Simulated scan of single mutants.
Amino acid sequence: MLLAGRNAIIYGGGGAIGGAMARAYGRAGARVFLAGRTPATLSAVASEIRAAGGSADTAVVDTLDEHAVEEHAAAVVAAAGRIDVAINVIADADVQGTPVLDMAVEDYLAPVVQSVRSKFITSRAAGRHMVRQGGGVLLFFGGAGDPPRDFHLGGLQAGFAAVEHLRRQLAVELGAHGVRVLTLRTGGVPEVIPADVPGRAAIEASITGQTLLGRPATLKDAGNLAVFAASDLARTLTGTALNMTCGAMLD
């Protein structure tokens, strides 16, 4: 198995994207540490991983609270010996559907401020342990891209772009310590769109229509790519984004 004997923290592991990655990590042999704010969803994912023969632990952690994140990272090291992989897929507090000129300043900045704070805090906590142990992988999910013409996403992509700069900076500063830093660049995963969202069919059609392959990435794709990125098969990759947009965004 690609991740046998490794320990992975997934912040937001109870959500759709985080859960898919957690299950994939469990299948690949990693011991998975699920962190988030909702005990019920974390426990549900952990139960699935254990039922499939994997190992999973859960912890309620607010990723905007640096002390809580630091304490959790230390607890993981105390329990497992090291942190090999850390990925933060906590949902951003974004306000969508409103044109920029009609938005409040706080609504536009919310996904920028909260996303950067959350990703910085979790990356710093895990990164400190990775530097001490001489290696590890920090993963981000999102990536920069052109604003869509059909939908108003507010400050969501501004937050993605800010996190991308954080990823580059971390890759430069931590590379000498054996720490790789990557983004899983998404063009949208329709499966995560709630069924009751107004215009859901149009959103899914837009995501699919922008791809070159005529199909969008799935949750299974996200999990599989997260496993690859964290494995030794990707040992030459750092400071870059792995494009899982099915051709919606060209490099």
Rank of each mutant, 00 (worst) to 15 (best):
M130I: 06
Q157D: 13
H129K: 03
M130A: 04
F141N: 08
A176L: 03
G145W: 10
H177L: 02
G154F: 09
V137D: 01
V179W: 02
A144G: 12
R128W: 05
G145C: 04
R149P: 10
A158C: 05
R128D: 06
E173H: 05
G178Q: 04
G136Q: 10
F141Q: 02
R132Y: 02
A144Y: 11
A162W: 01
A125W: 07
G155H: 04
V163A: 11
A144W: 12
G145K: 12
H129L: 04
G135T: 00
R128M: 12
A126H: 01
L153W: 14
A176S: 13
H177M: 02
G175V: 06
L170H: 02
R124L: 09
L153H: 14
A144P: 07
E164S: 11
G145F: 07
Q169L: 06
L139M: 15
S123N: 03
A176Y: 00
V137G: 01
V137S: 11
I121Y: 04
H177P: 03
F141H: 07
R149A: 15
G175W: 03
R167C: 10
G127L: 07
R132E: 15
G134M: 08
A125Q: 04
G143N: 08
V163R: 15
G159P: 10
G145M: 11
A158I: 03
A126V: 02
R180W: 07
V163L: 07
L170T: 02
L138F: 06
F160C: 10
G135A: 00
G142K: 09
L139K: 05
R124D: 05
H152M: 09
E173N: 10
A161L: 11
G159R: 01
R149I: 10
H165D: 13
R180E: 14
L156A: 12
F120V: 14
Q133N: 12
G143P: 08
A171T: 07
R149L: 12
G159S: 07
A162N: 01
A144R: 13
L170I: 03
L138V: 11
L139H: 10
Q157A: 07
P147W: 11
L170C: 08
Q133V: 09
R180K: 08
V163K: 09
L139R: 08
A176H: 07
H152T: 07
H129C: 05
A125S: 14
P147D: 11
G136Y: 08
G127I: 09
I121C: 06
A125T: 02
